[in-house]
Design a protein around this nucleic acid. Sequence first.
DNA 1: AAGTCATGTAAACCTTACCTGACTTA
Length: 404
Amino acid sequence: MPEGPELHLASRFVSRVCAGVVFSGPVEKSEVSKNSEVPFTCDAYYITATSRGKEVRLTLTPIEEEGEPQARPAGKACQPMDIVFRFGMSGFFRFTAGSEMPKHTHLRFYTNETPQRALSFVDVRRFGSWEPNGDWQTDRGPCVMFEANVLSDRAFDKPICEAMLNQKYFNGIGNYLRAEILYRYAFMKARTVLDGLLPKKRELPEVKPEQGQCQPHQDSEMSLSKKIKVKMESPDILDLCHSMPMEVINMGGKGYDPEKPDDYSTFQAWLQCYCVPGMKSLRDHNGRTIWFQGDPGPLAPKVSKSPKAKRKGKKKGEDQTDKQGVKGEPPAKGIKKEKEGAQNKRVKSHSESKKTKENKRKGSRSSEGRKKQSKPERKGDAPGTTVVKRQRRRSMRTKSEKDS
DNA sequence: AAGTCATGTAAACCTTACCTGACTTA
């Protein structure tokens, strides 16, 4: 689950397990990885790590012998090296016995002990990457957790929910943090509205509706313009972009612990919106699922006309546009809502691409297709829960159960 | 067996592709 907090926890993990441990020899890369080889070899070196947003930097530091730099066989001194990692969707570090090779390991650092141990970069989906002699990516903004963030107006050229995944402005925010931040932001704004009406604001009860209850965002009246540009809103969002990931970090490693990947229960309990039954979801224009409660209001994304998943072997004429609607509602209503924007002007479509128009002509995105893919709610689920949500949660649960 | 989804992002698009694995559906 690599978002900012997980990257930071990974850097802490590496620094902790590698403290005082002497590594030796070349860095080993899997054959299948398309990332570059790490041209570093040294008889004795230390590994430390730091993080910034969604990047982790390993520093390989040759150990000096009696104050002298180590000489390599060619006579050239070993030089320190930084390697900057991005974790993609599934990257993490493991520290294991050298004889134990975690599946999907793509980069390994061996200790000079007997028996050997190894630090491994594991990445099932291989979307992660590393850069030898690399530095923090220049087009990424300051770390939302540990650096001051000053947003330019351009960050608000798009709906905030889309801007939040832009690492140029919010380095470290990913999809689950987006959901949790926007969810809490909505209540923060609700609180603000009530504070203005009531004299004893400190005695206000926590504004929190019952699970599954759909509440419109209270700031929808304040900002119905097409884009959120209200500067005074940004401090709220900025605060949450810092405090939410810090909460995950401060879970004591229970949110995401490379040593205990089987215990997600604390983290799952922390989630109030992401993949939570009763919450609704939409696709943003990048095909990412955005989770929210009730009417998405001014926080809504532009809705993708062409969801990310145009999978291989997809049958012609098969529709995928159901995912664009508000899940958990009858599909016709969702689509109508999306097309007409009756209740929600921000849930709007992109202008159709040529390909989309072509597909429509071919009948590949007919409304019939949408109807066929709609799923009824199941008994026992909170209102608005869809099959997709059930699947996802089951998947998370099953994974933790299985791993344990 | 086929389809769908997933905590990300580069490249060239305004989406698509890159990947694997778990799960559901037919």
